Simulated scan of single mutants.
Amino acid sequence: MKTTSPDTEKKKSGIFARIISWLLVILILGLGGYVYYRYYFVFGEGVKSGYLNYAVKKGNLFKTYEGKLIQEGLRTNQVGTGVSNNEFEFSVESDSIFKILEVNSGKYFDLHYKEYHGVLPWRGNTRYVVDEVVNMR
């Protein structure tokens, strides 16, 4: 009959606990990296120009600022579907920017935006978040 010493069992359980803790740390870091990349990493940014169609505050649980810019020119969405207008739907995080947009509906704007991979409900309904009014006329 073979018996194992208490030291051998302690070493086995210590190694197992160490492996589990490292896997847990790696899993948490990986999940944190994914959440950052998906919801907080700025994928792209630029400026869009057009006539402001509307700026509204809406939402069931999180009230967010949303807007739509009608860009000049025409485009086709799919082959054979005809021509439609260029619309840029966006969200706004800042109260001050929303107030500018709200009282100037119908004017021509140049808006600086940031594009994210994912949508957060408290940030808005779109992946595009306007953070600056570059020009208004």
Rank of each mutant, 00 (worst) to 15 (best):
N77I: 07
T81V: 10
N77V: 07
F109C: 12
Q71V: 05
L61P: 05
K68H: 05
K68F: 02
K63R: 14
N85R: 12
S105W: 00
H117V: 03
L101K: 07
T64K: 04
E102C: 10
V119W: 00
V129A: 00
R127M: 02
V47N: 06
I97P: 08
L120C: 07
L111W: 04
E89M: 09
G124N: 08
G118S: 13
E45Y: 00
P121K: 09
G59F: 12
F98E: 05
R123L: 06
L74H: 00
V129Q: 01
N86C: 12
S91T: 10
K58A: 15
Y51N: 09
Q71L: 14
Y128M: 04
K68W: 00
V47F: 05
K63Y: 12
Y108E: 07
L111H: 01
V83T: 15
W122Q: 09
A55F: 08
K68D: 07
N104A: 13
T64D: 04
L69Y: 02
H117W: 08
T126W: 01
E115T: 01
L111D: 03
G118Y: 09
N77L: 13
L120Y: 00
T76L: 12
G59K: 12
V119E: 01
E72N: 14
V56Y: 12
Y113N: 02
L52I: 03
V92Y: 06
T76R: 15
K48W: 00
G80I: 11
N125K: 14
G80T: 10
W122I: 05
Q71K: 14
V56M: 10
G59W: 08
F88T: 02
L61C: 13
V130H: 02
E93S: 15
K114N: 06
I97Q: 08
R123P: 03
L111M: 08
M136Y: 04
F98K: 03
V133T: 11
V129F: 01
R75I: 14
Y54A: 07
G118V: 07
V130G: 10
V134T: 03
F98N: 06
K114C: 02
F90K: 00
E87V: 11
D110Q: 13
T64M: 02
Y54V: 06
L120A: 11
I100L: 14
P121N: 10
N135Y: 06
V47I: 15
E72Q: 12
D110R: 12
S105I: 15
M136N: 04
G118F: 11
G59H: 09
H117R: 13
L120N: 06
V130C: 11
R123K: 15
E45P: 01
T64E: 02
S49L: 04
Y116A: 02
D95W: 04
I97Y: 08
F109G: 08
E132H: 11
T81D: 14
Y65P: 03
Y108C: 04
I97R: 08
F109P: 04
D131F: 04
F43K: 10
Y65K: 13
N125H: 10
K114F: 06
V134Y: 03
P121H: 07
G73F: 12
G46S: 07
Y108Q: 11
V56E: 09
G67R: 05
D131A: 01
T81P: 00
V103D: 11
F98R: 05
G50K: 10
F88E: 01
E115N: 03
V56W: 09
T64G: 05
